[in-house]
């Protein structure tokens, strides 16, 4: 059991660095580099989201709030004070996400289940409306263009490596977290919150902890993304952004640590292939979501694993 986990883990990291390390070497165009960058950042965002949903059982429909927050810190600071503020702005974005998620968390974690989902959605939409309407500060619907990272980070390959490094460190931290006592406690909260109270633990306090942690990674993702696309837009706050990150989790498998990353890759590649050819993108992701929920609730990674397990035990029975 433990052995298998070990192999899976080593396998992931080997594949991760092999694929994403070689992309700058083999990428035919800058476009491919951007695509790979998107997979990295969304993958990390989705894994952080899954700390809430897959691990703790809290379906937040408002993680776009922190993603947008991270992006707008970078966008606004670079626009106002210049490129040199790019990196500090990422830090400020994460810090403000910590503070804001603590504040909002105190309000929304008092209620559970569907209520939590609804309220996170409402706060996300509130942020979107403010960004959208506060034209002379945020640029409203126009967003902010021409956000450049300073110095050598302005080089696309260097920026890619920078993202790769930060994403790898983030995933590693999340991995440690899942295996830690806090991770175990959070999984227990999803499965049986009442029993966790009888362990003498505060359920809501721990939920708040993971809400803050997950949200700060969302802000990091937003900050990094602004340097990839060189532009930001209020839609980063919009509910469909939260919906997309949820879909990535569900496609990969919310019961799987690495699943959401795979889900992000799948969605971004589909988006690249199909999205360019149709304006009915939301119909497609709607149908994908429906299929996953009804037929493959464990996600691609989870279902493949379940299939392999059945296959193995079948072979074992025969032999």
């Amino acid at each position: 059991m433990k052995h298998r986990h070990r192999i899976k883990e080593v396998g992931f990291w080997a594949l991760f660095f092999l694929v994403f390390g070689l992309i700058p070497v083999f990428a035919k165009s800058e476009y491919h580099l951007v695509l790979a960058n998107h997979i990295l950042i969304w993958g990390m965002f989705a894994m952080a989201f899954n700390m809430l949903f897959g691990v703790t059982g809290m379906l937040s429909f408002g993680q776009a709030l922190y993603y947008g927050l991270g992006a707008y810190w970078v966008g606004l600071m670079v626009k106002t004070f210049g490129e040199a503020w790019f990196l500090p702005a990422i830090g400020f974005g994460v810090l403000s996400a910590v503070l804001l998620s603590m504040l909002i968390g105190l309000l929304v974690i008092r209620v559970s289940g569907v209520y939590f989902t609804v309220l996170t959605l409402a706060f996300g939409q509130l942020a979107w409306q403010i960004t959208f309407k506060w034209y002379h500060f945020t640029g409203g619907d126009d967003g902010i263009q021409g956000i450049m990272a300073p110095g050598i980070l302005g080089n696309h390959i260097v920026y890619y490596c920078f993202t790769l490094l930060l994403v790898a460190v983030s995933i590693w931290i999340l991995r440690r977290l899942v295996n830690s006592p806090l991770g175990l406690t959070l999984r227990c909260i999803r499965q049986n919150p009442d029993r966790v109270r009888f362990l003498g633990r505060r359920v809501r306090r721990n939920q708040l902890r993971i809400y803050v942690i997950s949200s700060s990674f969302a802000a990091l993702a937003g900050g990094l993304m602004s340097g990839v696309n060189n532009s930001i837009h209020p839609d980063m706050f919009y509910w469909t952004t939260s919906g997309e990150v949820i879909l990535m989790g569900v496609i990969g498998g919310i019961g799987q640590f690495f699943g959401p990353f795979i889900g992000a890759a799948v969605i971004i590649i589909i988006q690249d292939v199909v999205g360019a050819r149709t304006e009915y993108w939301s119909l497609i992701i709607g149908l994908v979501m429906m299929t996953m929920v009804l037929l493959l609730p464990r996600g691609l990674v989870g279902e493949i694993q379940a299939f392999m397990a059945r296959f193995k035990s079948g072979a074992g029975n025969r032999g």
Partner: peptide, 9 residues
């Protein structure tokens, strides 16, 4: 110890 985050159980 349930708050510990960086060490495996």
């Amino acid at each position: 110890m349930t708050r510990k985050t960086m060490k495996s159980v």
